[in-house]
Design a binder for these strands. Sequence first.
RNA 1: GGGUGAUUAGCUCAGUGGUAGAGCGCUUCGUUCACAUCGAAGAUGUCAGCAGUUCGAAUCUGUUAUCACCCA
Length: 1026
Amino acid sequence: MEKTFNAAETEPRIYKMWEDSGAFAAGANAKPGADTFCIQLPPPNVTGFLHVGHAFNHTLMDMLTRWKRMQGYDVLWQPGLDHAGIATQLMVEKQMAADGENRKRSEMPRDEFISKVWEWKADKGGVIEQQARRLGDSMDWERSAFTMSGAASAPATEKPGNFHDAVLKVFVQMYNDGLIYRGKRLVNWDPHFETAISDLEVENNEVDGHMWHFKYPLADGQTYEYVEKDEDGNVTLREMRDYISIATTRPETMLGDGAVAVHPDDTRYAPIVGKLCEIPVGPKEHRRLIPIITDRYPDPDFGSGAVKITGAHDFNDYEVAKRGNIPMYNLMDTKAHMRDDGEPYATAAATAQRIARGEEGFDEGKVAAMNLVPDEYRGLDRLEARARIVADITAEGNAVIVANPALEAADSDQPELPKTIPFVEAKKIMQPFGDRSKVVIEPMLTDQWFVDSSKIVQPALDAVREGRVKIMPESGEKVFYHWLENIEPWCISRQLWWGHQIPVWFGPSVTPQGGLSAQNQLQFCAPNYEAAVEIAKAKYKELLGYEVEIDEFQMIEGDYAKGIKEAGHHVATADALWHPADDGRIIEVYISRDEDVLDTWFSSGLWPFGTLGWPADDPAMKYFPGDVLITGQDILFFWVARMMMISQAVLQDDPFHTVYLHQLVRDAKGEKMSKTRGNVIDPLDMIDAYGADALRFSNAQMAALGGVLKISEDRIKGYRNFGTKLWNAFSFADHYQIPYPGNAARPEATQTLNKWIIGETGKVREAVDAGMDSYRFNDAADALYAFTWGKVCDWYLEFSKPILQGDDAAAKAETEQTLRWVLDQCLIMLHPIMPFITEELWGLAGSRTKMLIHADWPEYGTELVDVDADREMNWVIGLIESIRSARAQVHVPAGAKVPLLVMGLETKGQSAWDNNAALIQRLARIESLEHVDSFPKGCVTIPTDGGTFGIPLEGLIDVGSEIARLEKTMQKLGKELGGLRARLNNPKFVASAPDEVVAEAKENLRLREGEEAEMKAAIARLQELG
RNA sequence: GGGUGAUUAGCUCAGUGGUAGAGCGCUUCGUUCACAUCGAAGAUGUCAGCAGUUCGAAUCUGUUAUCACCCA
């Protein structure tokens, strides 16, 4: 054997052996008729690289997978990749720029860009699958899935698959079930990527902002008495006003105000509720008037108590506007610049004015088309527009003016400072940022697709409430409930190209006159164009009363009318379009597919069955529902909850029975890893330095439920050392030339030593399984570490030496067999954590029928414990430790062999000594044992249960230091005795505590009292000497 | 502001009512034939504070403090 385990050489070789032999394949090593066990890998982004978080949860998944596979379950660990819409699109755009492609994405045809993405994927994507192999992951790579597999755009070189079909089928089914709808709603808009994003993709950060206070003059110069009172109702301010004061952090959105709202109980504004006020921006002659309304949303104690309502640009305002039927005017384009389209401001403002006065009705479409940005602000960035608007309002005298605080602070009048200034508060404000783009997110009123989450949330909630799905740690359940009980509609459309294009085609509506209109378009949802055509044909026949041809065209920027004009089809007006035959009948109707793609999380929501061939009738569907999902708690809502909702909505089943959530993996100090901090630990570097097994053991060991995960290189190094320890145990066997047949059965042991270690093995098997069963991976790892190092290597191997070198052939053979068996058990039980080194050591045996990865997991337990052997060996270990300790404390040279005296040795102690004399002598470096009636003066005393030992060291020891040693031990003992006596003297304790606890306390007291007596005697002897 | 969790040895952390543990680090000793990536011995705790429940609390309850994360 090599001196140490060479991970760098061994790991790739072993991995190849497993993979080439199909050891990871679904069902490998399954016993006939076995139950399935399935873990779905949370699919990493196709753009992803392995980081410590993956390394951590892959370790846990691999441990479970290997463990269940060894137990003979029909196991599948399903790998795969997520197409990752935004991330991938970004990566390919970067690649294009790097390659010197002079067109941007928006300048190339969609198809061409998509094929570039596929090329990128084939060339550079999925690196993480190779990296995961270095960890030792036993996934069924043959089955690796991809969320875009089977898409029409996929090149022939791509691995076949049907995930794309599954996604569209789920969409169509949910659409038909009324769970998905399209609507104009306020969504989070990312101006950088020019797409909607979901609430979860928004990070709110506190930033420095300002709050401006402006006057909205009342219409037609009206005035009212404004009265402020304090808490006791005393009037603190009374003045005539011709305006209402508004505070805002977003002045540029004033242009889209639809109303000013005050609280219904706010008496200050009661006189003017229902009146109109003027938005103090824009050309004087076209100032818009808006109504003052009441709503419960404004907080009378905050700011002036009056709030401007801009339904299209603020989530709170949106709710108010919906309640009050206030028009929501959209002011910005997809880049969050002030709109520069539509009719001139004067026309739009005049229409808005009639709406505000109630002289004209409005609907969503009409309001959406109106651009209320005054001509001079059109096309400006929103921040630039803000600055201009603030300046303009202030210049006109409509800013609220206050005394200059700088002036108050100064002692003397400083003539250069103005006496009053506009009221602008510096204020911390929460601002939303895109989690990928890092730009400020705009609430925007746009047409999007939504999942009506509230309709499908109940089964997911019930699953957890009824215990069908268990979330670990338990605290996750509360968070889960809280979120699901307050769930908002889920925006699933994204204005991207890379992804599953929404399978809905739009067609014109049919007017009462039998014409066609681009307004209120009809939707045809189907998994493909042909099916959509069939639905459309039927629908138009129903509406028109005769058959029409259906043809397809492309919308332009989501605009049906624009697209159809561009396509050169016959268009009568913007509202009515048709392609009539001579008799006035319509021959052909054009439909067009929605340009948007689905949120990546929508497709990953069906990962638990989309990977198994669904909707095809695939035998792999036997692995659904899966068993446990292991993932970071940050995607509980993004992914876990949605998988649960979608699985229930589509298959009426939960996708798994257990969710194991873990925290973010941090550095040794507990800080987030980041490139800017420079504290990123690359798992591959750790594998290079210490081997995959060491990294895995470290991961298993830190996996305390709900714990903070801090990865430390020192720990990993420590577990590399543990591997070396295990390796050396095998060198030990090698050195003693112990046969290694490879099928060592557990012997019927006669030797106490062997009985003992067999019992210990039984105990650890139970501990390991209990840990694995309850997802306490750290318990399993710690139990194995303590057993292998602390029991097997520290004691069993040491104890076996005298027998292995001795003359008793039968005892030697039994010990050899036991030793091989015990070491094999270590390999088997350590395999799920440390697969490489254990498989390598397993291969050292002469003959094996199976690789370790497929070895049978043991089923024995504590029935193997021999109580007498257990007690005897623990006595021996205790005695050796006591002798060693005493020797060290009185500075007996480590190498010196000393005589040992004993008095009052009981039968039990005598037989324990007789059985183990050789090993006690060897390990405690004792040269002889002599029975005496009393110890000589100057003797180190070692009390044990069943006899008192002494080391005669007259003249060698320092009496003072030995007395000090004994007294110190006595002190500790005294404390313990005090506690025990107090408990046992308390009648309530004896009466209430369980019998075994009382018995244990009594036994402890007996032992400690015995020791105390011995100590006292020993101290007395020493004092005599002194 | 709301929610969740944490506070245990110098450090990092286990500990699911029976009287305190691991690894690392530290000190001393040791190359005795598996292993110096090692062995032996040792030191170190008002289990954050306060109050309560209990025969008994690191553990359960309340409260305070500090910290972390999530959501507004």
